[in-house]
Structures are given as C-alpha cells and as structure tokens.
Design a protein around this nucleic acid. Sequence first.
DNA 1: GTTGGGTGTCATTGC
DNA 2: TCGCAATGACACCCA
Length: 486
Amino acid sequence: MCSTANCVLPSRRTFEALTTPGRLCVGGSMSTHLSGARSHGAPQDTEMDVAWQELMAITELQFDVPGEAHETTQYQSMESMVHMGAYGMAQSQYQPPSPPACDLSTANTYDGCYSIEASASHQLSGNAEAMYTHSEPQLNQRMFPVSSHTQPSLMTPREDLNIPGTSQHRRSNAGLSQGRHMLWTAHGQSLHARPADDLESDSGLSLGSSPPLASPDNPVSGAPGYQSVDMNMTYSDGEPESMTGHTRGVQMHYSMDYQNQTHSYLHSGAHPSYFQTHTAYSHSQPNAMAPWSVKQQSQPTALGDYTDSGVTSRWSSQHNLYTKQPGSTLTPAPLSRDERRAMALKIPMPMDRIINLPVDDFNELLTQYTLTDTQLALVRDIRRRGKNKVAAQNCRKRKLESIFHLERELNQLQTQREHLAQERQEFKRSLAFIKCRLADLYTEVFSHLRDEDGQPYSVDEYSLQQTPDGKIYLVPHTSMHKRDNC
DNA sequence: GTTGGGTGTCATTGC
DNA sequence: TCGCAATGACACCCA
C-alpha cells in the first residue's frame, strides 16, 4: 500500500496506479491506463374554319377492321434492381456481447480493442445503370396511294425524289430511315382496313397555325380530288362502311423496317413508281438520332414485334400498324389521320421525309412540288405533329425512366435505412457493454484504493479522472461539482 | 359504367 | 425570328 501521506488531497488527489493489482501510488504517474382545354390560336374566318374542320374531320373516314385484336405488351425491359449486397456495415472485430453481462470473463475477450467500421459504402447509384432496351418509336414509313394509275396527281414533282440528289443524299446522311414500306397494289386498291374510329381522337386541327383547308364541300385553294383519292375508294364521311367490305379483300404488300420506324407513313423517296410490288425487307440506315436514340435503337416500336432476332414484345397494344386477328395473319394497322389527310389532299411527298428532314432539306423538298396553300399548310402541320409525336413519346419514356430510377433509389434508401437501424442497435449494445465494463473496472480500482486511514474510498464519493498527460486523479464528487459549477 | 394506361395533339416555354 | 425539343394538359380509345 502506498504510504504516501498525501494520498487524499483536499480537492484533487494524484495517485500513481500500480501495475500490480491492489497497489495504487498516489502522487506518481500512472502506468496503467483505463481507457483506451385548349384554346386555338387566331380567330379564323368562319367559313374557312368550317371547311378546315371538315377536312380535318377525316376522322370519320374510317375503315373497319373486323375483329381487330391486339397483343399487349407493356413498356419493356426495366433493368433488374441493383444488388444491395455491396452495401452493408462492415462487421467489427468486436463481437457484440450478448447480453452485456459485464462479467470479467467475458470482458477478457474484449481486449480493449473495439472497432466498428461503419460502412460508408452507400452506393446509391448502383453500378448497373437501368437500361431500357426498347428503342425509339420512330416514325413509320408508309406509302400514300398517290398512284398515277387512276388519278394522276395534280402536283408535279419537279424532281424525282429518288434521284440521288442533294436532298436525298442529305437525307440519307441525316440518318433518315427508309425502312418500312407500305405498298399498294397496282390496281390502287385500298391499303388496309381501319377501325370504326380513328387512331387519334383529337381533331388534329391546327387552327392557329394553318390556313383553312379544303373540304369536300368547300374545295378552297384548289385542293384537288378530295373525293376521289386513289385506291378505287371515295373518302366520304358518310360512308365509312363502304370501305369495310372493300378493304377486306385488299391484298397488301409490305416492306418493313421494323427496327427503326413507327409512325411515318410514307416511304422515303416515295414516288408513284414506287407503288409497285415491293416486298423486300428493308434494313435502312438508322433514323435521325434523338438525344435518347441510343436506347431507342433497340426499343420495340409501335410497328410491331419484328426485329432481326425475331419477335419481341410490342411497344404498344393500341397503336400498332400491324394487328393480329384471331386465326389470321397480321393485318396492317389503320392509317393515321394525317395519312388520310395527306391522301385526301394528295400530298405527293413521303411523310417520313416531311417529318424527319432537316429544315433546309424540307424546304427544298417543298420547292420540288407545286403545292397549294392548303397542301402546304397540311404538310407543315404534318411535320409539326410528327415531330411532336416523337417528342411526346420521348418525353413519356423519360418520365417512366425517371419514375423507375426514383423507385430504385427509394428501395436503396430503405435498405440503407434498415442497415443503419441494425447498426445503431449494435452500437447501443456495445455502448451498454462498455459502460458495464467501465463500472466493473471502477469497482475493481476502488477496491484497491485506501485512504490514509486504510479505509477504502467510496465510489459514491470519489471518481477517477484522467488528464491528457495520462495521470489518473481521484477526485471527490463535491470538488467535481464545484468545478463543474465553476 | 368506371378506371387506369397509352397515345396523339395542342399550347407554351426555353434554347 | 424561326425551328425545335420538352412538357403539361387535354381528349380519346381501349382493356
């Protein structure tokens, strides 16, 4: 036992901890440490407006597709969720005692080395990016029945579209597809049947941007041949049924580029001569690349399921250009409203070029034809709508991707939260054990301390404090309180 | 008949 | 000023 007289100091007592249990030397240095509704633009002339709407209301130019059936396949190919295994709390060397019994036998295993390595590997952004395998629903390629057999177009192309000229060449460079070909029989028969209602429900009017178009009753601007569009059919709002029977027997020829196009209806470089039997499977150059086009290349298109590798899921169940009827082969989807408008006004140029050509090429294309104001307005509307259609598709796709990413991030955060909660519980258990262990050590130390009278110090009256220099002091609680109060 | 998803279209905005 | 992409809103169709 330490014999130093000043074992107990009035306010603070320095002692030297003995390395040997039971011997504390007060006053020396301690060698053992305890711690370690929309509004449409400008007002229109009423009469013109009516005429325009009449033309635009070709929605009623409907063809029946009896028994039309659709295959439904939803938006495809979300990437599988990223494994969360990368995240996790690195388990410490310390094994959390169960339960913190604070007995010395268990404490021996503690060995003063308590290290928990909290994982910082919160990999919110997984390695694998969600990749959509669908490709961009591009514009379809479809031909218009501007056949010269039955009714030569009043518009004379100044230059053959197929001539490898500047426009055509630049179009190719622009990556415009000339993929899907909807061909017409040499007899100019109708292309395909159409469901009772139109594909698009909106009127499609662009009253604010387009001059009034001709209507059957009001052939303004010399819109030619509204009632006598080729294909041996007369477009009449009042006779949609007349088309039904007629179109059922129509022989259709298709050449398709299923990969690239979805909604353009005229083949690039369409020309009357092109309305010949043409069934070659076209693998055209990729379409003009949109910002998302990298993914779009492999995206199932609204055209249908066909890819080089075979049948894939459909992009849409509703607006397929090909629909499968029970017990029958694929049936071409109905024409869009713009297609029918273009047919009605005998727009002589392919829709995909109308929509996809660069501005300069588009303007050059327009110069190649003598178009009426009505036709010009329609062409520009077709271009605007076609581009906006693609933009809307991209926009929706991005929205879905955003939702998908947010959901994935939410899942990751929830997983992370669970890990952190588990980690917290382990820390709490460890802390309880450490406290218990400290209490044991405290008791043990105090059991060896004696004052000058040989009496043990009370744990309730004294506490041990260590200074930064490693010295251990026995401090009475009263002085501690005074110091704390100071 | 209702509902939700898909789609086309228009208007608007910003680049 | 023009062209265009992006997007909200709306209407419509369909399962």
